[in-house]
């Protein structure tokens, strides 16, 4: 089973890389892009008997390792 983990900086944390990308897009002439936030994406291949257990395992890994809860939050998709 595959878990997809999306890690993003919390809204309260300034993201200078995202800001720089947004400014670059603006200088390229793109309009209608008010902001960019950069994050990380992980794919976990899991041996889990059910989607619920896969989610539980992925959540454990995400909260302990993949994301730093001081600055980041995460979202998980299973399947």
């Amino acid at each position: 089973m595959r878990a997809r983990v999306f890690v993003t900086l919390k809204p309260s944390v300034f993201d200078p890389q995202g800001r720089t990308i947004a400014e670059s897009l603006h200088s390229m002439g793109y309009v209608g892009i008010s902001d960019v936030r950069q994050g990380k994406y992980f794919e976990l291949e899991l041996d889990a008997p059910s989607a619920d257990q896969a989610r539980e395992l992925a959540s454990d890994v995400a909260s302990r390792v993949l994301a730093n809860p001081v600055i980041e939050s995460y979202r998980i998709e299973i399947g």
Partner: peptide, 17 residues
């Protein structure tokens, strides 16, 4: 030390990158 929770907070990318 911050990642290990022996100290609070975190170190982010420098503001000017």
């Amino acid at each position: 030390l911050c990642e290990a929770k022996l100290l609070p907070g975190a170190l982010l990318r420098n503001k000017d990158l």
